[in-house]
Design a protein around this nucleic acid. Structure first.
Length: 283
DNA sequence: CAGGTC
DNA sequence: ACTGG
């Protein structure tokens, strides 16, 4: 491991909370060992820890760290731009400093395909198995995320052996399409939100929720609002009508209407605080 | 029962 | 439908 560097957090880089950012369930491959978070950035193992407004790290240049954690984003302004409602304010307070990281697009896509209808520990196990089975060794016992080419060329039974169940064919199918489609990231990035989502929806295993996760977490389209069971419940309980069923887009549109153009960020804070937000059953 | 999709 | 915390 290379030498350690320290980044002094100031200006737009504040607020920033590394623990909340890496443990909120947006990324699945970081592991905390003692004070240090261990993960992979690009193709390199990285160690990182926060001490107040100091960010200590090794294994990657400062520019990569700053870009990954989106430290040039004026998060304070985004949070200040949200409406003044008690539920969201409580969520912001409890997860203050959480930043949406810039996930590599393929890793994000593959992760959320295998994440459907599963819980977070299960997702972590699956991704670890996939990385060990198909990822390139990059030293220190770390592996890079498996390339789409590698997964596209692997038998379904090998993929399924990583406990992904029926999602094996989605993962393999999407890997095949994307590995043959050089430039897909640039194309998605250049499209307006609706068109970008329509494009992603053509991938097997990618529905509206997964597509919105990809757009929010990899492409930083903050108008993308992934609506999972938790967000559905929170929106119906506190912002819509509890006993009514709403379509996916109806809830996402309501979120954009209520929270504005950065509704995706509001979604992430509500998700992070999901356990603390009152459930309708408890009322 | 868990951050849905076909 | 898989799968396991």
């Amino acid at each position: 491991m290379s030498r350690y560097c320290t980044l002094h957090l100031e200006g737009d880089a504040l607020p920033f909370d590394l623990d909340r950012t890496l443990s909120c369930g947006q990324v699945f491959r970081w592991e905390k060992k003692g004070h240090w978070w261990c993960g992979v950035l690009g193709q390199k193992p990285v160690l990182i820890r926060q001490e107040g407004d100091l960010l200590h790290f090794s294994g990657a240049p400062e520019e990569d760290i700053s870009r990954y954690f989106d430290l040039d984003l004026d998060l304070e302004e985004i949070l200040a731009g949200f409406p003044d409602d008690p539920i969201l304010l409580q969520a912001i307070d409890s997860a203050y400093g959480l930043r949406i990281v810039r996930q590599p697009a393929w890793e994000c896509t593959a992760s959320y395909i295998v994440a459907t209808f599963a819980n977070i520990p299960g997702i972590q196990t699956r991704l670890k198995l996939l990385c060990e089975r198909f990822g390139e060794r990059i030293g220190d016992g770390h592996t890079a995320f498996p390339s789409p080419e590698k997964l596209a060329a692997s038998p379904l039974c090998d993929i399924r052996s990583c406990r992904v169940g029926y999602r094996d064919k989605y993962l393999c199918g999407t890997a095949a399409i994307l590995s043959a489609d050089h430039g897909w990231e640039e194309r998605i990035a250049a499209l307006p939100y609706r068109d970008a989502r329509r494009e992603l929806l053509r991938l097997p295993g990618v529905g509206k929720k997964v597509a919105d996760c990809i757009l929010l977490f990899a492409f930083h389209r903050f108008e993308a609002v992934p609506v999972d069971v938790w967000i559905d419940r929170i929106m119906r309980t506190h912002y819509l009508e509890e006993d009514t069923r709403y379509s996916y887009d109806r809830i996402a549109d309501a979120a954009r209407q209520i929270f504005g153009p950065n509704a995706g960020y509001a979604q992430e804070y509500l998700f992070a605080a999901r356990e603390m937000i009152p459930d309708m059953r408890k009322k």
